[in-house]
Every structure is written in structure tokens, then in C-alpha cells.
């Protein structure tokens, strides 16, 4: 299974990630009363980018973006999609740290291009990351303390026995906090500060064209996938649905159905996020930080205190 998932997981994540990007464009268009592009439009964009002749600001400019995409793929290996996962080493902490590597690679690459717009974008990205990491770390610590494990797979497995994490009342507050910060984690509209095209010429990717842009788009798709999948894994019970698959557990069908359930859950979360995304304007960075450090942090902190007292 692990060997198989080494090949399947990244492909699945790339396809689903690109599809989700397309779907999000389509749904946003529908909310705007537009027709919108076909759902496979991101794929066309990626092919177009690959066919174009890019410019390069040196070896480091190339290395950063390759590192970023590769680390996102490695991240997928850590992420249980239903029963599919390849690695568990290091658990959720290693996962959190590997999540750093993607933005870090892009930050290095774009700073090597020497464009001030990119630098502003990266500065915003790290500030935004600091802003949402505070509640995110509180939430993840709550979950890890509650289940007394640092393994992502184990967290999912425990939920498979008890239903979703939401059904355990101690994790309701962290779940709400995570949902409130999810747009910031995904970097969508109210928090689209990093790559604001109108202000800072799409920020870190200002100098990316051709294959660099294609790599960035793929990385963005994977990032979307990871952000949604982490939420589904931690709070919505991963690829299980209240023991629905228990009668056929262990068979290939259970695995496939588990993945489908997982993807459906991700899709639902994405659509709810899109409803927020489509109608909101952009925050300024100060407003975003103030928001993220106020309500989500407060809720997450109360959640952690409750769990700490319970234990």
C-alpha cells in the first residue's frame, strides 16, 4: 500500500488540486453571475506556461521553486488521504515544519530575482503566516494534547473509531477556530494579501514566467490540497464517515470509497470557503493580523485551556 501510494498520492493531489482551482474559479464566476472558464482551465494555463520561454535570474532562482514544489509533494506523502499515506516519520510536528518549506522555497526564489515587489510579497507572506500560525499552532496543540499523540495517522485512526472530531465536544472550539483561519491558510480572497496583483504585481511571483510559473501553479494547487486535507484529517475524521465503511473494512473497495469520502469532504469545505471568498474584498495586512490574533486566537486559546484542564 505504501509503495503504491508513493505514486498515486502526488498524482491524485495534483489532479485534485488543479481541479479544485478550476472549480473555485467556476463557482466564483457563478456567484458573480458570469459564465466562467471551464473547470480544466488551470490545466490549460499550466500547459501554456510550460510552452512559454521563461527567464531565469540564476541557479538559485530555479532551485527555490523546484525545492518548493518538491517539498509540497513530500508533504502529500505525510498526509493520509483515506488509507493512502506513505510516511509517518516525525508525525504532525515534522508535517508542520515541512509545510514551511514550500513558502520558504518560493521566498528564496523570488528574492533571488531581485524584484522589490517580490520582497514586499514575501514580507507579507511571512507576516500573514505568523498571524495565522498563532491560532493554528494552538489548535494543533489542542488536538495533539487531546488525543495524546503527535502522529497524524493516529489522530485520524482515533477519529475513525469515534466519528468526527467535532463530535467530541472538547474539540468544537478548536474546530471553529481552524475554520475561521482556513482562508488565511489557503491564502484566498479576504487574505489574498500576499499575491495582490493590483498592489504589488502579484508579489512573490512577479518575475515568474514560463516553467517557473507552471511550477508555481502546481505548487499552489498542492498547497490548496494540503490546507483542505489537513482540516478534513484533523477535524472531519479523514476518509471515514461514522463507521459506514466498517462492514467492508480491509478490502480494496473500502480504500477507494474512503478516498472518495475524503475528497467529498474536502469539496464541501472548499465550497463553503468559496462563498466567503467570492463576496469579500481584500484585507490590509494589519487588519488581517488584528483579525487573526483576536477572535480565532481567543477561541483556540479557550479550547486549549479546556483540553489542558480536562487532561
Amino acid at each position: 500500500m505504501k509503495i503504491l501510494s508513493l505514486f498515486i498520492s502526488p498524482l491524485l493531489a495534483l489532479i485534485i488540486g488543479l481541479l479544485f482551482l478550476g472549480i473555485s474559479r467556476k463557482i466564483t464566476a457563478k456567484i458573480h453571475w458570469r459564465c466562467g472558464p471551464p473547470v480544466y482551465q488551470p490545466l490549460i494555463d499550466v500547459i501554456r506556461s510550460f510552452s512559454q520561454k521563461s527567464i531565469s535570474h540564476g541557479a538559485f532562482f530555479d532551485f527555490g521553486i523546484i525545492l518548493s514544489l518538491s517539498s509540497s509533494v513530500v508533504l502529500i506523502y505525510f498526509l493520509p488521504v483515506g488509507d493512502l499515506y506513505a510516511m509517518t516519520s516525525g508525525g504532525l510536528i515534522a508535517f508542520l515544519y515541512l509545510m514551511l518549506l514550500g513558502p520558504f522555497g518560493i521566498a528564496l526564489s523570488s528574492a533571488a530575482s531581485g524584484n522589490p515587489n517580490s520582497s514586499i510579497g514575501v514580507s507579507r507572506k511571512f507576516l500573514l503566516a505568523l498571524a495565522y500560525e498563532v491560532p493554528l499552532l494552538l489548535v494543533l496543540l489542542t488536538v495533539m494534547t487531546h488525543y495524546n499523540t503527535i502522529s497524524l495517522v493516529e489522530i485520524v485512526n482515533i477519529q475513525a473509531g469515534t466519528g468526527m472530531a467535532f463530535s467530541s465536544w472538547a474539540l468544537v472550539l478548536p474546530g471553529i477556530a481552524y475554520f475561521l483561519i482556513l482562508p488565511a491558510v489557503l491564502g484566498v480572497r479576504p487574505f489574498e494579501i500576499v499575491s495582490a496583483p493590483q498592489e504589488i504585481s502579484s508579489g512573490p511571483v512577479a518575475e515568474f514566467g514560463g516553467k517557473h510559473l507552471a511550477f508555481y501553479t502546481l505548487q499552489h494547487a498542492l498547497q490548496l490540497f494540503v490546507g483542505l486535507a489537513l482540516f478534513v484529517n484533523i477535524f472531519l475524521g479523514g476518509g471515514t464517515l461514522f463507521g459506514l465503511l466498517n462492514p467492508i473494512a480491509g478490502t480494496v473497495w473500502a480504500t477507494i470509497l474512503g478516498i472518495i469520502i475524503f475528497l467529498v469532504k474536502m469539496f464541501i469545505v472548499l465550497v463553503i470557503e468559496l462563498f466567503i471568498n467570492a463576496v469579500y474584498p481584500r484585507f490590509r495586512i494589519e487588519q488581517a493580523m488584528r483579525y487573526l490574533w483576536k477572535w480565532p486566537t481567543l477561541i483556540a486559546f479557550v479550547g486549549l485551556v479546556i483540553v489542558a484542564i480536562l487532561n
Binding site: Q41, I44, D45, S54, P197, S201, S202, E207, G209
Partner: peptide, 10 residues
């Protein structure tokens, strides 16, 4: 499939 982009590179 026509969308505006911010920089000529893209």
C-alpha cells in the same frame, strides 16, 4: 480563458 495578469512575465 482570458484573464488580466499583473506582470509581463506571466
Amino acid at each position: 480563458g482570458i484573464i488580466p495578469v499583473a506582470t509581463p512575465r506571466q
